[in-house]
């Protein structure tokens, strides 16, 4: 079941959102529960803290009272990075770019510009993505690290230290762990490519077992592919 939580003080917008959600859920046949709020209150706080269901929040940024949609989003993200957030807004691009990243916002939709169509497309996308929010969490003395599984390209063993290196699109992280330990924390999309390498199959576009390399979707060639793991990789 997916729970939709709408926080919007404009009754017309609320009605539009209600209609869109009902339409999409009927077309795709998934169970829903919808809750409506016009501003932040104790009941909304309880909903935010409750962890049973997957949620989609549709928030207006400007609300009555002292608590804005952004503040509500911060409260959501204090403990919950699994739910999706969609903002109804009329703010500038810089505001959207920053908040989209720091709060992992799914989309910002302008009220008076293709609102219904954008909302429909977003809800369909959310449903089809199946809430892929699994994270690898690593805690160290000075910094905690959290990376979405979907962002990890591959992981290798560091030759010099007793550490592993996690590669994402623009960043590599060196952490204290073994490949075996980290492999146990990951899911089925990750496979052993080599004694010293694990890769995310969703990002691999080509395997060359004879030459010992695989190619990622960003064009990078990684010379760590062993025939020993061929069966498992191609399963």
């Amino acid at each position: 079941m997916i729970k939709f939580i709408i926080v919007e003080d404009d009754k017309n917008i609320q009605d539009i959102v209600k209609k869109v959600i009902r339409k999409i859920s009927m077309l795709n046949d998934f169970e829903i529960d919808v809750k409506y709020y016009t501003k932040f209150n104790k009941d909304l706080k309880k909903e935010i803290d409750e962890e049973l269901y997957r949620k989609v929040y549709i928030l207006d940024i400007e609300l009555d009272g002292n608590v804005s949609g952004i503040d509500i989003a911060h409260m959501i993200r204090d403990n919950d990075w699994d739910s999706e957030i969609i903002f109804i807004t009329s703010h500038d691009k810089m505001f959207e770019t920053v908040h989209r990243n720091i709060l992992d916002v799914f989309d910002f939709i302008e009220k008076f510009h293709d609102f219904t169509k954008r909302l429909e497309d977003d809800i369909k996308l959310i449903y089809n993505q199946k809430f892929d929010k699994k994270m690898l969490k690593v805690y160290s003395k000075n910094a905690d690290l959290e990376i979405y599984f979907k962002n990890i390209l591959y992981i290798t063993r560091d030759k010099e230290d007793r550490k592993i290196i996690i590669y994402t699109k623009d960043i590599s992280f060196k952490i204290v762990s073994t490949l075996t330990d980290v492999f146990d924390k990951l899911d089925d999309r990750f496979v052993r490519m080599h004694r010293s390498c694990i890769a995310n199959k969703d990002h691999v576009v080509q395997y060359c077992f004879n030459d010992g390399y695989f190619i990622l979707d960003n064009g990078k060639k990684v010379m760590m592919l062993s025939k020993k793991y061929r069966k498992e990789i191609l399963k």
Binding site: T97, H99, N142, A143, K163, S172, F173, K174, I175
Partner: peptide, 30 residues
């Protein structure tokens, strides 16, 4: 991206900085 947040709770002033970055980080040595 650079995000700066200033707020308070009962006892403290809290400043939060969030920035995008690229490159390499050794978590243990940070």
């Amino acid at each position: 991206i650079l995000y700066l947040q200033f707020y308070e709770n009962k006892n403290e002033i809290i400043v939060v900085l969030i920035n995008s970055f690229a490159g390499f980080i050794d978590l243990e040595k940070l």
